[in-house]
């Protein structure tokens, strides 16, 4: 199965500065993938390269096996992109936005758009610029979904939402993944809710990829190990040590394990996704670990 998104050695340079470097990853179809990292880590750059809004300085990007820059006619109808700044024409009414969507997109589903807007209580006659911030974002998502994309990219979609708008927006998005088998890649710097929404994670730090993989696999593999103060050489021989902290008496290790920890002198604890993400944000890695899922349940939901 080809992934919805595949990159190999992908990089983007602005002058002397690399906004993204040596990025090799796959987002399998049917996933809801989270792209996390601090501001300036390269999240928006990766999304722009994937949606063909920008061209790479190095490496390759493929969407459904095709280049978004070289085959825009084949790629663009199949993807949706929602940028940070709610891409709406503020002077247009909601109904006029729909007409525009219909005229510009061959696969436009007008009935779907109207049904969703009605459900959200967004009036068709109101000017887009007069809607509340939450409603503007919802309208933008309705527009993106009515395009019937197979792959939807969202740049910080919920950063400015109040909790209710955030929940409604995510419900609509996730419902669409069930209805249409949509693949989603969304960037976020809010990490506390990711485990609930997403099943795949990509961590960027300082323009570099630091971790990619299935979230439940990532959670299974990472452990917090605690022991009286000691060196970690034996541990590093078998497992990947992500982070080590020593105090006078104690050694604490966050490890990506490659199997059971047999040494009984380590006290083994589970780690939350948030703690794993934070550990990786601190550490650009030389070899990017891909925590792959090789179980049978990798299937596209329809």
């Amino acid at each position: 199965m080809t992934g919805a998104l595949e990159t190999m050695g992908l990089g983007k340079q602005y002058g002397d500065l690399w906004a993204l470097r040596d990025c090799t990853l796959t987002v399998p179809s049917g996933r809801v993938a989270a792209l996390v990292g601090p501001n300036g880590a390269g999240k928006s750059t990766l999304l722009q390269l994937a949606s063909g809004l920008n061209y790479p300085s190095a490496g390759v990007v493929r969407v459904f096996g095709l280049s978004p820059r070289q085959d825009p006619g084949l790629v663009l109808p199949r993807i949706g992109f929602l940028s940070q700044d709610r891409p709406l024409y503020r002077g247009f009414t909601v109904a006029e936005m729909l007409t525009m969507g219909k005229k510009l997109n061959p696969r436009w589903d007008d009935a779907l758009a109207r049904r969703r807007l009605q459900h959200l209580g967004i009036p068709l006659k109101r000017k887009a610029g007069k809607l509340s911030g939450g409603q503007q974002s919802q309208l933008a998502l309705v527009m993106a979904l009515a395009k019937r994309p197979e792959f939807l990219l969202l740049d910080e979609p919920v950063a400015t939402f109040d909790p209710l708008a955030r929940r409604e927006f995510l419900s609509m998005l996730l419902e669409a993944t069930v209805e249409d088998g949509l693949t989603v890649l969304l960037s976020s710097h809010i990490i506390n809710d990711l485990e609930r929404m997403c099943d795949y994670i990509i961590i960027l730090s300082a323009a570099r990829l630091t971790l990619v993989g299935d979230i439940s696999e990532v959670l299974d593999r990472h452990k917090l190990l605690i022991s009286v103060r000691r060196d970690t050489d034996g541990l590093e021989h078998l497992h990947n040590v992500v982070q080590v902290t020593h105090t006078e008496r104690q050694t604490t290790v966050l490890a990506r394990t490659n199997g059971h920890i047999w040494d009984p002198s380590w006290e083994v604890h589970d780690v939350s996704l948030e703690d794993i993400v934070l550990a990786y944000l601190g550490q650009p890695q030389r070899d990017v670990p891909t925590v792959t899922m090789d179980r049978a349940d990798e299937e596209v939901l329809r």
């Binding site: 996933r31 809801v32 929940r167 995510l170 419900s171 609509m172 996730l174 419902e175 993944t177 069930v178 209805e179 609930r196 929404m197 997403c198 099943d199 439940s216 349940d297 939901l301």
Partner: peptide, 21 residues
């Protein structure tokens, strides 16, 4: 249905699928 749970809880569909499986 998976869709109902997903819409209600804003939860990843694969999570529901895994639970039902």
């Amino acid at each position: 249905t998976i869709k109902q749970i997903v819409a209600e809880l804003a939860i990843n569909p694969n999570t529901v699928l895994k639970a039902y499986r």
